[in-house]
């Protein structure tokens, strides 16, 4: 299995719901808590596993605004794992989820340096590295209703721009989306083979116009229309 997310840039409105849902779930989740420093002071800062960036593509008037959520891509060739000296970081062989064993991490930051996607953040409280768990504590929890065995960010996304599934299964929703919507990896040249895929904004086709029903108003004045 190769679990991951397909993220639809055509519909993401940049609402940050997935980011706060993630923070909410995971602060009491398997790698929690996610500490915040100066939560009510100057320069508040904390550990997040998912952040939304907004880019402008092109130059006005032909510019496009694109919202891009970024969390761990669960890379196939995850250098964050390779570099980890303690073995805290690992990629699960059964499903490809990249995780951090909190009891092993020594907070050396090296994995964060190795990650091209800014997916790892050091928790200022625990001193350990935090990152997206793909909500491993939801997706396998047999006691959750089946429909809720999905990452927190996925169930909450109001535009349903995040789809979770198995990229190894060609019939899964994510595989189909990747094929049909030409899903793209970010920074492929680095060779990390990220699993998460980004579905580019769709081109909108020109539309037909008018099509005279009535001709001009003056011509059709006072058709007999029964009230």
């Amino acid at each position: 299995m190769k679990l991951g997310l397909a993220i639809d840039l055509d519909t993401c409105v940049g609402c940050h719901a997935c980011a706060t849902a993630c923070k909410q779930w995971n602060t009491s989740g398997t790698i929690g808590p996610l500490t915040d420093t100066r939560p009510y002071g100057k320069d508040p800062n904390g550990a997040w596993l998912n952040r939304i960036r907004t880019f402008e593509v092109g130059v006005s008037p032909d510019s496009k605004t694109v919202n891009m959520p970024l969390s761990c891509m669960h890379c196939d060739d995850a250098a964050c794992v390779t570099v980890c000296p303690t073995g805290a970081s690992y990629k699960r062989s059964e499903d490809g989820i990249v995780l951090i064993d909190q009891s092993r991490c020594m907070g050396c930051n090296l994995c964060a340096w190795a990650c091209p996607y800014g997916a790892r953040e050091l928790d200022p409280g625990s001193g350990t590295m935090k990152k997206c768990t793909l909500c491993v504590d939801r997706i396998y929890d047999q006691q959750l209703p089946e429909s809720e065995r999905q990452p927190a960010c996925v169930i909450t996304c109001p535009t349903q721009s995040r789809v979770f599934g198995d990229f190894d299964d060609p019939e899964s929703d994510v595989s189909k989306l990747q094929r049909e919507r030409d899903g793209q990896p970010l920074m492929p040249e680095l060779g990390y083979n990220p699993v998460n895929t980004y579905l580019p904004p769709r081109e909108s086709a020109p539309r037909p116009q008018g099509g005279s029903v009535l001709g001009t108003v003056k011509k059709i004045v006072n058709r007999i229309i029964h009230r």
């Binding site: 009491s28 398997t30 790698i31 100066r38 939560p39 073995g87 690992y90 009891s103 092993r104 504590d137």
Partner: peptide, 30 residues
């Protein structure tokens, strides 16, 4: 207000990696 805040409704249940995996695994990929 606190300088640091770490909310959790319960202590985390860490997903542990086994020593066998840490020491035994050569490849880091899935």
């Amino acid at each position: 207000a606190p300088i640091q805040q770490a909310y959790a409704s319960h202590p985390n249940i860490n997903l542990k990696r086994s020593w066998a995996d840490v020491l035994g695994r050569s490849s880091t990929t899935g």
